[in-house]
């Protein structure tokens, strides 16, 4: 762990200004307030990733929680505090991939009540239809491609950070992204222009 030591108790109480290294160290000392600040910082992106990876499955919250619980059990697993976000993303995405081998994702189809918008090319798309269409296209990508796409385009990680999170080379991430883009474009080929030209 790369945290600093020797802070007074008054400084430790104000965790909102502490950096990740200090928060990890305090979490290792079972300071729930410090861990709450980590949750405050990273729960949302982790949940978003899980949601994207599961296609909006109802278990998204549980899976995101598992990643944080794993961190809480042993914060020293994160060797470099600056890699914390990537570590959480990796743990969460591994959990998703493990679970995806069991049940099929179905919630995304039920989340938005539209009849298959890709099949109806004769009318302009409204926002809900466009969203459902794009969500479906992303959900149809293979796990690794969807993960790379989510990390880089939705969570704003650089290719290098995504490679670290996925434990692959940067070239592998670039390859996954290229295939993901190609796959998404093929999946949305019929409505690609409509999606770009604007919504009804």
């Amino acid at each position: 762990m790369t945290g600093r030591t020797g802070k007074g108790s008054a400084a430790v109480e104000d965790y909102t200004k502490a950096d990740d290294a200090d928060l990890l160290m305090a979490s290792g000392q079972r300071q729930q307030a410090a861990f709450a600040e980590l949750v405050n910082r990273y729960h949302r992106p982790v949940y978003r990733l899980v949601w994207r990876m599961t296609g909006g499955h109802a278990d998204s919250e549980d899976i995101a929680q598992e990643a944080f619980l794993k961190l809480w059990r042993d914060p020293s697993q994160v060797r470099e505090a600056k890699a914390l976000k990537g570590w959480l993303m990796r743990v969460a995405s591994n959990a998703v991939i493990d679970r995806s081998r069991k049940p099929a994702h179905a919630d995304i189809d039920a989340a938005v009540e539209v009849s298959d918008p890709a099949a109806r090319t004769d009318h302009p798309l409204d926002r809900a239809e466009a969203t459902a269409l794009v969500d479906r296209g992303i959900a149809a990508l293979p796990d690794r491609q969807r993960l790379a796409l989510s990390l880089v385009y939705f969570e704003g990680l650089s290719n290098i950070e995504a490679a670290e999170a996925m434990e692959v080379s940067v070239e592998a991430v670039e390859s996954l992204l290229a295939r993901a883009k190609r796959g998404l474009k093929q999946a949305l080929a019929d409505r690609w222009r409509d999606l770009l030209d604007g919504l009804a």
């Binding site: 969203t131 969500d135 992303i138 939705f154 949305l188 770009l196």
Partner: peptide, 8 residues
């Protein structure tokens, strides 16, 4: 295109 996706 991705901006149209659900922001969960």
């Amino acid at each position: 295109i991705l901006a149209l996706a659900t922001a969960a």
